[in-house]
Nucleic acid binder design. Structure first.
Lengths: 337, 337
DNA sequence: TTTATTTACGTAAACGTTTACGAAAATGTA
DNA sequence: TACATTTTCGTAAACGTTTACGTAAATAAA
C-alpha cells in the first residue's frame, strides 16, 4: 500500500490522461493500438495492479463472494471449500470465509454486514440454531444472491444444492436391517437441523419398510465432547435391550462407537453394526472397514458456486431459483457385514 | 448493493452534512451528544452499513487478511483455518482464502495481486514447489506484512510459526527403534519441502542415535493417488529386507500402510510398526490405534494470526520478526507397541 | 465591554477507478 | 473544396468515505 503505482503514475510518465490509460488497460476500442502497447508495457514494467477498492467502489461490484460455514473441522466442509475455491478461481472471484461456530447470533451479525456490498453473492450452510430465515431473506431482498448448500433453510426462496438426505437415512436403516439388525439406534448432534430431520425421517421410513418398530429412545442426541459421547454410547450398549446397529449421522460420532464396543467386549460387526455419514478416507482402514454414506462434498461446493455465478451473471430479476440434488453413495464395508 | 443507505441519506434526512454524520458515527469528540444520538438512532433504523470499499479506499486499509494455503483437504489446515478465523473475528478482520494446490505459478499469481492493497497482511504456508522466495520478498518490500506458518521459506525474512519438525522426525525414529525396529522406512510426498527436509534430517539423526544405518532406499517418495501409493508400499514390503517400521510423514500416507499389511499377511505392530504425522481423531479407533505425532494446528493458526496483527498494529518499521515454535506431541499407541 | 477560547458543525479535497460527454484530428465522401 | 464520419484522446463527474481546514456561535477571560 506504499509505493504502489496507480493509473496516474502511468499517465504522467506517458503524457496521457488517466482515462486513456484506464481504457487502454481495458482494451477499449477507443484507444489506438500504439498507445495500448505503450501503456500495457509500462504497466507491466511498473508492476501495476489496479486498486480493487477503487474499482469496486466505482463499478459497484466486488468480485468477491462469501462462504458462511458452521465450522471447517469436518471433512465435508474442507472438501466443499475446495470445490468452491476451484470455480471461484476460474471466474476470477475472491473468497471470503466466515465461520458461525453453529451460533445464530454470529450468523446474523455476519450476514448483516453483507448489506454493505462487501460481497456480490453468498454461499451458506446454516448453523444448527438457524430455524427462522428472516436474516437471510433480508439479504436477498437487498439484492444479493444467496445459494444454500447442504444445510438449507427451506422457508427461504433461494437456489440450493443438497444431497439426498432423506433417501440416505432410509437406505441406512434398510441396509442395517437387511444385514440382520433388529434394533437400530440413531446418533445425531442437532436434531433440529433441517438436514438432520430429513435423515431421521428417512431412518424412520426405513425402519417401517423393514418392519422394525421405531422407538423414541433409540434416537441419541450427542454433544461435542468425545468422552461425553462415548459415555452416552456405552450407556446404551449396557442396556439389556441394547441396539445391534448404529447410524452415525455425522462424522465425529463414529469414534465413540468404535471406542465403546471393545470396552464392552462387543465386536463389530458381529454384535453391533455401524454405518456412518462421513467422507473420511480412514473409513477404509478401520477394522472392520467402515460402511459409509459419503457425500459429494467437492461437487456440492462446486455446483453451489456455479449456481451463484449463474445468478450473478444474468443479474436477472430474482425469483428464478434452482434446486440441485446430488446423491450421496452408500458404500458397504466390513462394519455392517 | 441496491437500496443501501449511505451517509448522504442520513445527512439529508437530518439536515446535517455528510461530514457530521460520519464523525457522529465514529463517536468523534467534535460532535454534540444530541446529534450523535439522532444520527446513531437513524442509522440503526435505516440499517446503515458503511461501504467497506469506500472506507478502504479513503483510509488505505482493508481490514482484510489473506490466508494462502496449499490445500485444505488435510486436517491440519482445516484446524489452522479455525485458529486463524477465531482471532481475525475478534480483531474485526475479514479473511480471504486462497489455495495454491501446491503450484508455484498459482502462488506467484495470488501474491502478485496483493500488491494492489487488497489485503493488509498475509498468512502463508508455501507450496511444495516453492524453493525460492523472491515473490514473497517482493510483497514484504511493498510494505505488506507476511507471516509464515508451518511451511516456511527460511530465506525470506519474516515472522513465522512452526512446529518442531526436526525434533519430531528424530523422536519418531527413536521411538520406533526403541520399540525394536531395525529398519525404518520414511514415507513422504515432497522431499524438497523445507519442513519435509527437517523431518527427514531428524529421522536420520534419530537413526544415527539409535545406531541404525541410514539407507537412501528407505526414503519412499509417494504420489497423490491412494492406489499408486499402496502399490509402492506393497512393493517395499515384499522385499526380502523389508522394513519393520514406517514413518508416515504426512497424514494421507497412513492409509496405504494399513491397507497393504493385511494383504501381505503382515500384522501391525508385530511385523510392521507405524507412526504417522496426523491430527485425525480416527487415529484412536484404528486397529491397532495409531501412534501419532499431532501438530498444534489450531494454535499454530491462531498465533500466526496474532503475530500478523501485532505487526499490523504497530506498523513499525519492518525488520522486527518473531519466530515461534510450538511443539507437536508424540502419542504412543498400539501401532508401535 | 472586548477579546480569546472552546464547541459544533460545514466545505471541500482526497482515495484510485470508471465512464458519460465532448472535441480535435484524421479520414472519407460529395 | 466543403462537409460528414470515424478515430483517438481529454475533461470532469461519480462511487461513498474520511479528514484537513475554516467558521459561526457559544462560552470564558480580561
Amino acid at each position: 500500500m506504499k509505493g504502489t503505482t496507480t493509473l496516474k503514475d502511468i499517465a504522467q510518465r506517458l503524457g496521457l490522461s488517466i482515462a486513456t490509460v484506464s481504457r487502454a488497460l481495458q482494451d477499449s476500442y477507443e484507444i489506438s493500438a500504439a498507445t495500448k502497447k505503450k501503456v500495457t508495457q509500462l504497466a507491466k514494467e511498473l508492476n501495476y495492479q489496479p486498486n480493487p477498492y477503487a474499482s469496486s467502489l466505482r463499478r459497484r461490484v466486488s468480485k468477491t463472494i462469501a462462504v458462511v460455514l458452521p465450522e471447517v473441522a469436518d471433512s465435508f466442509f474442507s472438501l466443499a471449500i475446495n470445490g468452491i475455491e476451484s470455480v471461484a478461481l476460474e471466474k476470477g472471484y475472491h473468497v471470503l470465509i466466515y465461520l458461525t461456530h453453529e451460533s445464530l447470533i454470529r450468523e446474523k451479525a455476519i450476514l448483516s454486514e453483507f448489506k454493505s456490498g462487501r460481497v456480490d453473492g453468498i454461499l451458506i450452510s446454516v448453523s444448527e440454531e438457524t430455524a427462522n430465515g428472516s436474516h437471510i431473506r433480508e439479504i436477498i431482498e437487498a439484492g444479493i444472491p444467496v445459494v444454500f448448500f447442504d444445510r438449507v433453510c427451506d422457508e427461504v426462496d433461494a437456489s440450493q444444492v443438497v444431497t439426498n438426505d432423506y433417501e440416505c437415512g432410509r437406505l441406512a436403516a434398510l441396509h442395517l436391517a437387511q444385514q440382520g439388525c433388529k434394533r437400530i439406534s440413531y446418533l445425531c448432534t442437532s436434531p433440529a437441523l433441517h438436514i438432520s430431520k430429513k435423515r431421521m425421517d428417512g431412518y424412520r421410513e426405513g425402519l417401517r419398510e423393514a418392519g422394525l418398530p421405531f422407538r423414541e429412545t433409540d434416537i441419541i442426541v450427542c454433544g461435542s465432547s468425545l468422552t461425553e459421547n462415548s459415555r452416552l454410547v456405552e450407556k446404551i450398549l449396557r442396556k439389556k435391550n441394547r441396539p445391534d446397529g448404529f447410524i452415525a449421522s455425522v462424522e465425529k460420532l463414529t469414534t465413540p462407537v468404535y471406542l465403546s464396543c471393545p470396552r464392552l467386549k462387543l465386536t463389530i460387526p458381529d454384535d453391533v453394526k455401524l454405518l456412518s455419514f462421513t467422507n473420511l478416507q480412514a473409513a477404509l482402514i478401520l477394522s472392520p472397514p467402515l460402511t459409509t454414506i459419503t457425500q459429494p462434498a467437492f461437487e456440492m461446493g462446486a455446483t453451489a458456486a456455479r449456481l451463484l455465478f449463474k445468478s450473478l451473471d444474468k443479474k436477472k430479476r430474482l425469483g428464478y431459483n434452482e434446486r440441485v440434488m446430488i446423491n450421496s453413495v452408500l458404500i458397504p464395508r466390513g462394519s455392517t457385514q
